[in-house]
């Protein structure tokens, strides 16, 4: 059965007819070719597919595309602003918070929500906030540092802004 959907993704409206069983992550990756959102498991465990749906970090492998009808979505492709990296993206680079890059989009989207909820998290709070995201390369060390530094940088920007 196909279902008509209309979704705003990274500021652009997409209208599609989708198979009712199509997962949101498949819609992003296969229909729209937004392949920055990754699939690392089938059990909502690894977090590689994390995106922002209506302001909340969501694992897009656990949501149907049809359920996202009417939603506003941000994926990793929509985070940089006119080529300028988001402070989180900058910090991941500065602190070497990525190696193979596969978990990175999900980590950054999770971190976005984490900092939304808690703009100045402690190291322990960051670690707790990342418990839905696996990384096999970094031992999380530099990811934690990257999020910590981004939070302090973003805080300053708000103060000075």
């Amino acid at each position: 059965m196909s279902v008509p959907i209309s979704i705003t993704i990274n500021g652009k409206i997409y209208e599609s007819e989708v198979d009712s069983r199509l997962l949101l992550v498949q819609y992003l990756r296969e229909t729209l070719r937004l392949t920055g959102t990754h699939v690392g498991c089938d059990t909502s465990s690894c977090g590689a597919c994390t995106i922002i749906v209506d302001g909340k970090a969501i694992k897009s492998c656990t949501m149907l595309a049809a359920q996202a009808h009417g939603a506003t979505i941000i994926t990793i492709e929509g985070l940089a602003n006119n080529g300028a990296l988001h402070p989180l993206q900058e910090s991941f680079k500065e602190e070497h918070g990525l190696q193979c890059g596969f978990c990175t989009p999900g980590m950054i989207m999770t971190a976005l929500q984490l900092l939304e909820d808690n703009p100045q998290p402690s190291e322990a709070e960051i670690r707790h906030g990342l418990e839905g995201n696996y990384c096999r390369c970094t031992g999380y060390h530099n990811i934690v540092k990257a999020i910590y530094h981004a939070s302090r940088k973003m805080g300053k920007e708000v103060v000075h802004g």
Binding site: G36, L79, L85, Q89
Partner: peptide
Amino acid sequence: KRVEDKRFLTGKGKYVDDMV
């Protein structure tokens, strides 16, 4: 700082499953 990072940070890495 790593020169390969930008593509990974912006969702532009190219993994096998990304290819059609």
